[in-house]
C-alpha cells in the first residue's frame, strides 16, 4: 500500500518535466561528509580532500597524499607484492583490485622524503588497498624501511591507515606485528625519532603494534583510532558506543595521542618535529 501516489509529488513532476537538467549535473557533484553529515559541493574540496565544515580528512591513496605532503621523494621496495601463504580462494582478485585502486603492489608506500629541507624515511599506508590491511609484504616493506632508516641515520615518519591484520594471510599477518615492533625497538635503540600520524581508520593489529609505538603520535581530525571496531564491541559485548567514542579527539582526551594535526598543517608540523624533536646536537 502506498500513501501518496509516487509520480504526483512535486519533485517527481519537476523531474518529469525537465529530465535533461539531470544530465547536466556531474555524477559526484554533491558529497556527504561521513563524519559531520554535511552536504558539500565537490568543488569545495581542494587537493587535501578535507571536509570544509569539520576538517575530517577523507580516505585517500598514498600517492594522492604524496602530492602535497612532501617536497621530494624516492620510492623504496617498489616490487614487493603479497604472497598467498594460505592459498586463500579469491585472494588474487582481491589483490588485483587493490592494485587498481591504489596504484601500489602492497598496502603501504615506503621511501625517503624531504619535508621542507628535513629528510626522513616515510611510510604511508593506503586505505584503498584492501583497507590498508597488514599483510606479510606490508610488514616486510615497513620493516625494511626501519632498517634502512637505521643504516642511514634517518628518523621515521609513518602514516597509518588500516583495518588491521590481513585475514587472508592468517598467522603470517599476525607475526608482522611482532616483526615491525622489533624494528621499531631497534630504531629507538639507535636514538632516532619515530613520528606516527594516525589517519582514518587506524584499527586492530596496527593500532596494537607500530601505530602505538611512536615517540610522537599525531592524528588527523576525526580519524577513527581504535583497537576493536564498533561492530565487534556492539555485537559481541553488547555495549553501546557513543558516536564519537573512537574519534581521534576522544582518544586524545583519553591520553593516547599527542596532538590533532590537520592536513594543511602536516608538512610544516612534521618538518618542525624532524628538526627539533630528535636528539639535539649543537651546530646542527
Amino acid at each position: 500500500m502506498q500513501l501518496f501516489e509516487k509520480n504526483n509529488t512535486l519533485s517527481g513532476r519537476h523531474v518529469k518535466t525537465d529530465q535533461s537538467t539531470w544530465d547536466q549535473v556531474p555524477d559526484d557533484f554533491l558529497l556527504r561528509c561521513p563524519k559531520c553529515q554535511r552536504v558539500i559541493f565537490r568543488d569545495q574540496l581542494d587537493e587535501y580532500m578535507t571536509c570544509p565544515s569539520c576538517d575530517y580528512g577523507s580516505r585517500i591513496s598514498a600517492k594522492k597524499r604524496l602530492e602535497w605532503l612532501v617536497d621530494d621523494y624516492e620510492e623504496w621496495d617498489v616490487g614487493i607484492s603479497p604472497a598467498d601463504p594460505l592459498h586463500f580462494p579469491g585472494y588474487e582478485q582481491t589483490i588485483a583490485k587493490g592494485e587498481k585502486h591504489s596504484g601500489l603492489k602492497e598496502s603501504v608506500w615506503t621511501g625517503i622524503a624531504d619535508f621542507g629541507g628535513q629528510k626522513a624515511a616515510l611510510g604511508i599506508m593506503d586505505p584503498t588497498f584492501i583497507m590498508g590491511s597488514l599483510g606479510q609484504a606490508t610488514g616486510e616493506k615497513i620493516t625494511r624501511m626501519f632498517e634502512r632508516a637505521i643504516a642511514g641515520k634517518l628518523p621515521v615518519v609513518l602514516f597509518t591507515a588500516s583495518g588491521g591484520a590481513r585475514m587472508q594471510e592468517g598467522i603470517f599477518s599476525l607475526m608482522q606485528m611482532a616483526k615491525v615492533s622489533n624494528a621499531v625497538a631497534q630504531l629507538k635503540k639507535a636514538g632516532l625519532a619515530y613520528i606516527v600520524v594516525l589517519t582514518d581508520p587506524t584499527t586492530g593489529g596496527v593500532t596494537a603494534s607500530f601505530a602505538s609505538e611512536g615517540d610522537y603520535t599525531f592524528a588527523e581530525p576525526r580519524a577513527m583510532a581504535a583497537f576493536a571496531g564498533r561492530r565487534v564491541i556492539e555485537q559481541t559485548i553488547h555495549e553501546k558506543l557513543a558516536k564519537d567514542a573512537q574519534d581521534a579527539e576522544t582518544v586524545m582526551r583519553h591520553g593516547f595521542i599527542d596532538a590533532i594535526v590537520s592536513r594543511q598543517e602536516e608538512k610544516a608540523t612534521i618538518s618542525w618535529f624532524l628538526k627539533n624533536g630528535g636528539r639535539y646536537e649543537s651546530g646542527n
Binding site: A228, I237, A245
Partner: peptide
C-alpha cells in the same frame, strides 16, 4: 584481548 568499551577507553591497542 577483551573487546569491551572500557578496554578501549584504557588503551587496549
Amino acid at each position: 584481548a577483551y573487546p569491551g568499551k572500557k578496554a578501549e577507553r584504557y588503551g587496549q591497542g
